[in-house]
Amino acid sequence: MYKRVLLKLSGEALAAGRGFGIDAVFIHKVAEEIAAAHSLGCQVGIVVGGGNFFRGVAQQAIDMDRVAADHMGMLSTVINAIALQDAIEKRGIFCRVMSAIEMHQVSEPYIRRRAIRHFEKGRIVVFAAGTGNPYFSTDTAAALRAMEIKADILLKATSVDGIYSADPKKVPDATRFAQITYNDILRLNLGVMDTTAVSLCRDNNMPMMVFSMREQGNIVRVVAGEKIGSLVTA
């Protein structure tokens, strides 16, 4: 079993297929799974995206300055982080939101040593606002935070059950990889994460598990060491 993990959740996943906003039923299911993983003794950090409210490269932002659009995207992640914090705390677990953009009324500023101290005290930590910098995705933020907090593995929860040679929704006979290297992801241009995040994980030997969050209980299974999804190594 992993002792400390970094879980990457996309904003679109929290919308549960609705495209916009947060699906209240789904976010409570996710919170329940995270609480179950925490009850096993695993320290859980979470990086959440903001695509369900605003994406910096979306059609709506095409005429905007990229920096302004990305800052709006970062603020969207804070909304998701607060919603997830509330759902987790309803299960009797202490949870902290740490934001890369300081907003003292709703979150703590991200300080690495303080985050690690929260883990040691048995709290779940949700990292919001990405890296705090434009041009960097929440995938890159997840890779960065995983290494900063010395996580055992980066867990990427998606809508499919692993990494495929092509989009399985469009190409039914796409090949699924049980295990793959970061170099192969870059070489085959698989688009699992952006190239910055992939390179960061590869260069720092951070393993990653890509799995489906549509099947209930998968987060607990991954934390417990079950081999589901696709394992990515350096």
Results as ranks from 00 to 15, higher is better:
S10W: 02
S10I: 05
S10D: 00
G11L: 12
G11A: 04
E12N: 07
E12W: 01
E12L: 01
E12D: 13
A13H: 04
A13V: 14
A13E: 04
A13M: 13
L14Y: 01
L14E: 04
L14K: 04
A15G: 04
A15Y: 01
A16H: 08
A16I: 09
A16Q: 02
A16V: 12
G17N: 08
G17R: 06
G17T: 09
G19E: 02
G19Y: 06
F20M: 02
F20A: 15
F20D: 08
G21C: 08
G21D: 13
G21A: 13
G21W: 00
D23C: 06
A24C: 06
A24T: 07
F26R: 07
F26E: 05
F26C: 07
I27K: 02
I27M: 05
I27E: 00
H28R: 15
K29P: 05
K29H: 01
V30R: 08
A31I: 09
E32G: 14
E32L: 11
I34M: 00
I34N: 07
I34V: 12
I34F: 00
A35L: 11
A35M: 02
A35H: 07
A37D: 00
A37E: 04
S39A: 12
S39H: 08
L40C: 12
L40N: 13
L40T: 15
L40R: 13
G41W: 09
G41D: 00
C42W: 01
C42R: 01
C42Q: 04
Q43T: 03
Q43Y: 04
Q43W: 11
V44E: 06
V44A: 10
G45I: 01
G45W: 01
G45E: 02
G45F: 03
I46V: 14
V47A: 06
V47Q: 08
V48T: 14
V48P: 11
G49I: 09
G50N: 11
G50A: 12
G51H: 14
G51E: 00
G51D: 01
G51Y: 08
N52M: 12
N52Q: 12
F53H: 03
F53M: 11
F53P: 10
F54W: 12
R55W: 03
R55T: 06
R55M: 05
R55E: 01
G56L: 01
G56H: 05
A58Q: 14
A58P: 12
A58L: 04
A58D: 12
A58N: 08
A58Y: 05
Q59W: 15
Q59C: 11
Q59D: 14
Q60M: 15
A61G: 06
I62E: 14
